[in-house]
Measured scan of single mutants.
Amino acid sequence: AQASVVANQLIPINTRLTLVMMRSEVVTPVGIPAEDIPALVSMQVNRAVPLGTTLMPDMVKGYA
């Protein structure tokens, strides 16, 4: 199954992502693919992302 990017902590709005904030997990619905984690580093989220939330393309500025 495809692993997705999941928030490893609460990520406040406009925060630049770092590796420690993200983990890969097989979840439904599928979000951003886990292999994109390196590309997500330093991108900003456009909303607060609670712990355990799957990151979707529309949550990350410049990803989609």
Rank of each mutant, 00 (worst) to 15 (best):
L10T: 13
A39R: 15
I13S: 10
N14D: 15
T18Y: 04
S42A: 11
V60Q: 01
G31S: 02
L10R: 07
A39Q: 13
E25N: 10
P29C: 05
D36G: 12
S24Q: 14
S4M: 02
V20F: 15
L51S: 12
P33Y: 12
N14H: 13
V41F: 06
G31F: 02
A3T: 08
A3S: 12
I11C: 03
S4H: 02
A34C: 04
T18R: 08
V49Y: 01
M21I: 03
V26E: 12
E25T: 06
E35C: 05
Y63Q: 04
A34H: 09
A3D: 08
I37F: 03
L10A: 10
A64T: 15
E35W: 07
P38I: 14
V45L: 07
L40T: 00
S4Y: 03
M22W: 02
P38L: 10
Q44K: 07
M22D: 02
T53V: 10
T54F: 02
I37G: 12
P57A: 14
V26I: 12
T18A: 08
L10C: 09
G52L: 03
M43Q: 09
Q2M: 06
M43T: 06
T53D: 11
V41G: 02
M43N: 07
Q2G: 15
L17M: 10
T28Y: 11
P33L: 11
P29N: 05
Q2W: 12
I37N: 01
R23T: 14
L19A: 11
N46E: 09
G62F: 08
P33C: 09
L40E: 00
I11D: 01
T53M: 15
Q9C: 04
M59S: 07
D36A: 14
A34G: 14
I13L: 07
L51M: 15
G62C: 05
M43S: 09
V45M: 14
S24D: 06
P38G: 14
A1G: 14
M59H: 12
L10K: 11
A7M: 04
V5T: 07
I32V: 09
Y63E: 04
V27E: 01
L55T: 01
P57D: 09
V20H: 14
S4I: 01
L40G: 00
V45I: 06
N14Y: 15
T54M: 03
Q2I: 08
D58T: 11
A1M: 12
G31H: 01
L17Q: 00
S4E: 01
S42P: 00
V41S: 04
V41I: 14
Q9R: 12
M56P: 02
K61Q: 12
V20D: 13
A1K: 04
S42T: 12
L10Q: 15
P29H: 06
N14K: 06
K61P: 14
P57S: 08
G62V: 05
V41L: 08
R47W: 05
S24R: 06
T15P: 01
A7H: 01
P33H: 10
L10D: 11
I11L: 12
G31N: 01
P50R: 09
N14E: 12
N8D: 13
D58V: 07
G62P: 07
L19T: 07
P33R: 10
V5S: 05
L55D: 00
V6N: 00
Q44T: 13
V45K: 01
L10G: 10
R16V: 15
T18G: 06
M21V: 04
E35A: 10
Y63S: 04
P33I: 13
T28Q: 10
L55N: 01
N8V: 11
Q44N: 07
N46G: 06
A3G: 11
S42D: 09
A34L: 03
G62A: 07
L40W: 02
S4N: 02
M21Y: 08
T28K: 04
R16T: 15
V20T: 13
T54P: 07
D36Y: 12
V26F: 10
Q44F: 10
M43Y: 07
Y63P: 04
M43F: 09
T28M: 10
Y63C: 04
N46W: 07
I32C: 03
P29D: 06
A64D: 12
A7G: 03
T15D: 05
V30E: 13
K61R: 15
P33D: 04
L55S: 00
S4P: 02
L40I: 15
V6H: 02
N46F: 07
A1W: 06
T53A: 13
L55E: 00
A64E: 13
A3E: 12
V26R: 03
V26D: 11
D36V: 13
G31R: 01
A34W: 09
